[in-house]
Amino acid sequence: MSEEQQDREFIDAVRRDLDRTAEGLDAGIQSRLTQARYAALEPKSTSRAWFSGWSWKPATALAATACLALALSFTLNHAPVSEKGTGLEDMEVLTANDQLELYEDLEFYAWLAEEESAESYEKG
């Protein structure tokens, strides 16, 4: 028997076996298949398609983008920025000697201003 003929007989035997298996599916599976067919043929019953179809895709994409943006902003806005800001302010105060003295004598200048305004009130 030629190789080709052997292949053909083998395929015929496989086909018979597969046909037998498909026809002998258990009742539970057959019932589920019938339900699936009815669901597919129902004119306006698109509940399954509604869940698995395109209508959910924009919402899913939006949610995924929002999560990604949140994760990125959390990563990028981490502690170093505020520390950096504090450092700059400190440098400005430390390098300006006259301003520092002004801050230290602020109470004195406030008292002086009050005294001057009181004197001008009494004279006036």
Binding site: L18, T21, A22, E23, L25, I29, Q30, L33, A36, R37, A40, L41
Partner: peptide, 14 residues
């Protein structure tokens, strides 16, 4: 279509 789907559903499942 019902008849058609019925004729292929078992093989499709398999």
């Amino acid at each position: 279509v019902n008849d058609f789907l019925q004729s292929v559903e078992k093989r499709a499942y398999q």
